[in-house]
Nucleic acid binder design. Structure first.
Length: 855
RNA sequence: GGGCGCGUAGCUCAGUGGGAGAGCGCUCGCUUCACACGCGAGAGGUCGCAGGUUCGAAACCCGCCGCGCCCACCA
């Protein structure tokens, strides 16, 4: 026992511990990653970089605390923890926030204005058109502010990250790594460009990926529409999208549907336009739906794409990238019609309308022409939206970059099985997703604040872009912005000139960069020594809603670039739910800002709430639970004060049976909590530690109070040793959860940070106690606590104070238990203010308590 | 339609083959020399429903109901 003499404050308090200790940790470099550590000692975490697009919410606090508890545990286990923070600042959320915040929009025809300053107050007028570089500058300015706010929150929450390793997904390093990886994929044929029907958001006017879609229930109307047929009888179809009739390229029936067998092989004629379309059959058609006859448009939904591809249908595209109907060339090949003038006249009323407007107008037109059968019937149906969008996605043909995923499906499934999932059932979500993939990953976005594709295209003699021969940036050029940088072998003046070059105009999807966070955090290709130390990483912590995006794409990129898994373990957090069990939305999160929470309850209390949520489980937002956490922190403060104030020097060994029993118990607790942590079950570790700690305070500390203040130096030295050992263990057991209060109580009597102290070893504690299980001593502690409880009950029922003297207690029990109790009899008499303690053998155990007369 | 998870005290949840538990809330009591952000005690439950396995089921199996999430479909 080499600890210094404890120095305990008069009135310990939780107030101000966050500021005091986060400054201390920063000053001391407590969480600084030591790259001199050997590879096998390193524990690296692939931090989720939060989207810096505005509001922080309690969900962030919740899941980041889980990771921090794990990081702190591993550090105490002697691992050198690589725990950086990242900011995901590129992408649409930031663009949208900048547009709204500054009242601006990008106009690529506007020139860069080096002196541009946004209006200080956002006015309600039209947004100011600014150049793309000016827009990017505003994005960077705003994200910087946001990132400072995030960092302050994380520091207050007590995340044990090494802030010197912070990365951003828009920073030059991330861009270089992202572009380098892309060029590698391009060279190996894993990235390719294709003009094809693409999922498209009409507001953002960009392609989006399958993973970014979500269903939303929307009201619509089912229209029954008559197509013309050769025999004049007509063919009826049901559709919710009559505005796409001009884009109709075929009618389909199921091959075995006899109702329509006569039509199949023939032609039908579109109403209003008189266009001839073939009637074909395809097994995907469902006979039970509608009339059993379906209209195929290019493109109304993903099934249309399938039919278009498999049946080799032509394209009749009528939707523009802004979601409005295009003018179309009636009468030209592909747009032939029996009645060109009528078609042109009818359709011209739809040109320029949004799909919703066009839908209403064409319904009127069809009514007038008599081709609408009955009234449109209101229906509620699920419609696909871009998850950040406001209007349904459309499918629009455009040129996009793709990364191959479909050829790697099997390997990805294998990867999912090699990963250690915590909790294990989360693997199913990954497998479902991989099994359901229906196309390669579309990674290009027609946006501005993102990592540009590091390629240009040659222009032919006519000045047309030759997409088939992209010019890759040179390694030493990276990161490159092809819109301002010049490709190898060209001069700046050749931009846009026949025989010259043109930049690829797109940026990468935000996930195309986020999927490289292990490489970015580990500085792949930038700092090979560091990368070698930390990759593959140990842990990917994240929430379950982004398994199909972040987790999936990270595995994919790592497999494509490295041929191995990016990490060994994945820990999935749940969401924070409102008390009414609905997912807590970001807007609601604004009501209770995380910083406000931390100020009100204290960081340790909030962390307690977060870490009592089971791994993977959605957890209710409960201020009450934070109050409980605060009580635990206060209890730790006070119990430590009791144990450590004016504590005499410790004896060389434990002597009291009850002391040895208590230490043995704590030893088992330490082992169990450690085992739970090894399985990433921080909640279980906390629960057991907490349960036992309250018992320790209520029974053990009361039982040893007499000896604690004993004038007999030898007795006091014995209990001093027990208190030092138990307190030291409890403080360290709670350190991953309550880092501030634990550091505080540790500082009263120990050197250095508790967060670099070793995790309490069950085996060492058992050795100290004299055995892992001490049958008689532990029984003594147990029986003494039970009798003490009965004595308290008697006092409580008599409405007497707990210190009220007891004349006589008779304990009747088995000989074994009575014999054990003898070992703790003195402590029990002291704790219960018991004058006479008698024991008697009995078949029926009982405790008889005789209080002294009221004084 | 498929998959995953959940359903235990008023609330939040632990318990996975043999005593139905914790905290909060509630009731009653206690200024006890670490702590009133405390201490002690008490009330409160057909463990979603139904069947099966078992000497024994809250736990294991089958079915059903309800809630949540993911995926597919969405003409």
């Amino acid at each position: 026992m080499t600890h210094r003499t404890p120095k305990v404050p008069e009135k310990p308090t939780l107030e101000g511990l966050e500021a005091k200790w986060s400054a201390f940790w920063e000053r001391e470099g407590t969480y600084a990653f030591d790259r001199a550590a050997p590879r096998e000692r390193i524990y690296s975490i692939d931090t989720p970089p939060p989207t810096v697009s505005g509001s922080l919410h309690v969900g962030h606090v919740f899941s980041y605390t889980h990771t921090d508890a794990v990081a702190r545990y591993r550090r105490m286990r002697g691992r050198e923890v690589f725990y950086p923070m990242g900011w995901d600042d590129n992408g649409l959320p930031t663009e949208r926030r900048v547009q709204n915040h500054y009242g601006v929009r990008v106009d690529t025809s506007v020139a860069y204005d080096p002196g541009f300053e946004p209006r200080p107050e956002r006015s309600d007028g039209e947004p100011t058109s600014i150049s793309r570089p000016n827009f990017v500058e505003l994005c960077l300015r705003l994200t910087e502010t946001d990132e400072r706010a995030f960092e302050e929150l994380w520091r207050t929450l007590g995340l044990s990250v090494d802030w010197s390793m912070t990365y951003t997904t828009i920073g030059p390093t991330a861009q270089r790594i992202s572009q380098r990886s892309f060029l590698g994929l391009l060279a190996r044929g894993e990235a390719y460009q294709l003009e094809a029907p693409t999922l498209w958001d009409v507001d953002f006017q960009t392609a989006v990926a399958q993973a970014e879609l979500e269903d939303r229930e929307r009201p619509g109307a089912m229209h029954r529409i008559r197509f013309g047929t050769d025999d004049g009888s007509g063919a009826l179809i049901d559709t919710t999208r009559p505005e796409l009739i001009a884009a109709c390229v075929a009618l389909l029936a199921h091959p075995e549907d006899e109702r329509h067998a006569a039509l199949v092989g023939g032609e039908a004629v579109t109403p209003l336009y008189g266009t001839h379309v073939p009637v074909l059959s395809h097994p995907l058609v469902e006979r039970e739906k509608g009339t059993g006859l379906v209209m195929v448009c290019t493109f109304g939904d993903l099934t249309d794409v399938t039919w278009w591809r498999e049946l080799g249908l032509p394209v009749r595209s009528i939707l523009g990238p802004d979601g409005r109907l295009l003018d179309v060339p009636w009468g030209t090949p592909g747009w032939e019609s029996d009645e060109i003038e009528r078609a042109r006249g009818s359709y011209s009323e739809l040109v320029g309308l949004t799909v919703n407007q066009a839908r209403r107008r064409i319904a009127e037109q069809l009514g007038e022409s008599g081709d609408l059968v009955g009234e449109p019937e209101p229906v509620i149906r699920a419609v696909k939206f871009y998850e950040k969008g406001d209007r349904p996605i459309e499918i629009i043909t455009s040129r996009q970059w793709f990364i191959r995923t479909i050829p790697h499906q099997e390997r990805l499934l294998e990867a999912g099985r090699e990963l250690n999932w915590h909790p294990p059932y989360m693997r199913a979500r990954f497998e479902d997703w991989v099994n359901g993939l229906n196309g390669d990953w579309a990674v290009s976005r027609q946006r501005f604040f993102g990592v540009p594709f590091p390629v240009w295209y040659p222009l032919d003699a006519q000045g047309d872009v030759v997409h088939s021969e992209p010019i890759a940036a040179a390694e030493e050029q990276l990161p490159v912005d092809p819109s301002t940088d010049v490709p190898p072998g060209f001069q700046a003046e050749q931009r846009g000139q026949p025989g010259g070059f043109a930049a690829d105009p797109d940026v990468m999807d935000t996930w195309a960069t986020s999927s490289l966070t292990p490489q970015i955090a580990g500085r792949a290709g930038e700092d090979p020594e560091l990368y070698e130390l930390v990759f593959p990483m140990d842990l990917r912590p994240q929430a379950h809603d982004i398994i199909r995006t972040w987790l999936f794409t990270t595995v994919l990129r790592s497999e494509l670039d490295e041929g191995r898994l990016p990490w060994s373990d994945v820990a999935i957090s749940g969401w924070v739910l409102d008390p009414d069990r609905k997912k807590m939305s970001k807007s609601k999160g604004n009501v209770v800002t995380p910083m406000h929470l931390l100020e009100e309850h204290g960081a340790d209390a909030v962390r307690y709430w977060a870490t009592s949520g089971r791994p993977g489980a959605d957890t209710a937002f409960e201020a009450q639970q934070m109050k409980v956490g605060r009580k635990l922190a206060v209890k730790l403060l006070n119990a430590s004060k009791f144990a450590l104030s004016d504590l005499p020097p410790a004896a060389d060994a434990l002597s009291s049976p009850l002391d040895r029993a208590m230490i043995a118990r704590i030893g088992r607790l330490a082992s169990a909590a450690g085992a739970s942590f090894e399985e990433y079950d921080y909640a279980r570790a906390l629960q057991h530690a907490e349960e036992q700690f309250w018992w320790f305070c209520d029974y053990y500390l009361e039982l040893v109070k007499g000896r604690r203040y004993s004038p007999d130096a030898e007795v006091a030295a014995g209990v001093s040793r027990a208190l030092r050992i138990s307190l030291s263990a409890y403080q360290r057991l709670f350190a991953p959860f309550l880092p501030f209060v634990c550091e505080e109580v540790w500082s009263w009597w120990q050197e250095g940070s508790i967060h670099r102290a070793p995790w309490p070893e069950g085996a060492e504690l058992a050795e100290e106690a004299g055995g892992e299980r001490l049958s008689e001593q532990e029984l003594a502690l147990e029986v003494a606590a039970e009798v003490l409880r009965d004595v308290r009950k008697a006092k409580s029922e008599a409405k007497r104070p707990m210190r009220a003297p007891v004349r006589r207690v008779v304990v009747r029990d088995t000989p074994e238990r009575l014999q054990a109790l003898e070992l703790g009899a003195a402590d029990l008499r002291e704790a219960g203010s018991i004058d006479v303690l008698e024991m008697a053998g009995a078949d029926e155990p009982s405790v008889e308590v005789e209080l002294a007369e009221d004084g």
